[in-house]
Write a protein that binds this DNA or RNA. Structure first.
Lengths: 202, 202
DNA sequence: GTCTATAGCCTGATAGAC
DNA sequence: GTCTATCAGGCTATAGAC
């Protein structure tokens, strides 16, 4: 009696290698700009073999996005309504900036997708992302009503954190071209922390 | 005796239509994702006719970028060393935000290019853009030394203005998905002005 | 499971009639 | 100047041997 085998070690390793290679290529060239040849070469597989593990180019991209979305939003989920407001927000900012430093490809993958109109994740943005942001915005509003942080537009506050931190991943080449030898991640954390302390001090 | 004719009215109109169509298509899909078919259709020309006006896809893209770069940096150039520091900076922020509202395609054209490593304008970033930013950073440093605005990292201050304002063009779909019916440009200006007043007040 | 070979489509660009 | 027709090359995806 045959039964469905769990993934072999080789299969697990190949799937992981493909997603790793795909992250490299999709984040650097966008969906349309990426080719299966590039991904296969980066994963050390032949192109047909790559398509043995994933049925299509779209499937690889979808698997990547789906797998990363949770990771991407974890720092915002971690914002604790019971914590000390300013410290919670500064911790969120710090985590997001660390993600720009440590996971720039992931940031650029989403940037590519969203700049081009988010054709593949628009539904997720309008449902899951909106729900999460609305929920956290209510937390922020509560803190503001209690006088624990300054009163500002909660959604724009969250947008500002996204834009200020992700800028250092998405526009990395521009930042480095302008800064020259200075490492942006040496000086950015202090600047951004100062910004939010001044903005949010009640 | 024949002489070189200046561009006819039709030629001027067609070149303009091509660049307009190309801005639409390149900003929405990136360089690689855009096709000459799409551009030709949007410009109401046949593909060969399109290539009568521009020798190649690259040439269209280059013409677009070159023509827009000046417009794009004008607001920063307008930052007046002799002006009132906080007002000059707020005026810059305001202009940049207006450009995100009124010229979102231009913003996304540059965003696509830079997120993917700026393969076509890296040299310009390292020379012209860096020079301009360094020059204006010196103006900011002077204002800080004179105690006219708060002391922060001048380059990161400029990056923050770029990221906060361009976010509303480049990530427009995400912003609107999260905000729902509310128009981001109704509430963003006040939020961002508050942010910079608090950050920069000496 | 992995390969070679290739189908079939779309792309950027050109030729040549009008 | 603008068109129809078309080419060569690159693309995703599949067939079939091993």
């Amino acid at each position: 009696m045959t039964r469905t085998r769990p993934e072999t070690r080789i299969q697990a390793r190949n799937r992981a290698a493909i997603l790793e290679a795909a992250l490299d290529v999709f984040s650097a060239h966008g969906f349309r700009g990426a080719t299966l040849d590039q991904i296969a070469a980066a994963a050390n597989l032949s192109k047909p073999n790559l398509l043995y593990y994933f049925p299509s180019k779209d499937a690889i991209h979808d698997a990547l996005l789906a797998g990363l979305l949770d990771t991407w939003l974890d720092p915002l989920r971690a914002l604790d309504p019971e914590g000390e407001p300013l410290e919670e927000l500064l911790a969120y900012v710090r985590r997001k900036l660390e993600m720009s430093r440590d996971l720039p490809r992931e940031s650029r993958l989403f940037a590519n997708e969203i700049v081009q109109g988010a054709p593949r994740i628009h539904a997720t943005l309008s449902s899951d992302l909106k729900s999460l942001v609305d929920e956290k915005a209510r937390v922020l509003t509560g803190w503001m009503a209690a006088g624990r942080i300054a009163r500002v537009h909660p959604h724009h506050l969250i947008f500002s954190i996204w834009s200020l931190t992700q800028h250092y991943a998405d526009f990395d080449v521009q930042v480095r071209a302008v800064l020259g030898d200075e490492d942006p991640f040496d000086s950015a954390p202090a600047f951004i922390e100062t910004l939010y302390r001044k903005l949010l001090s009640p």
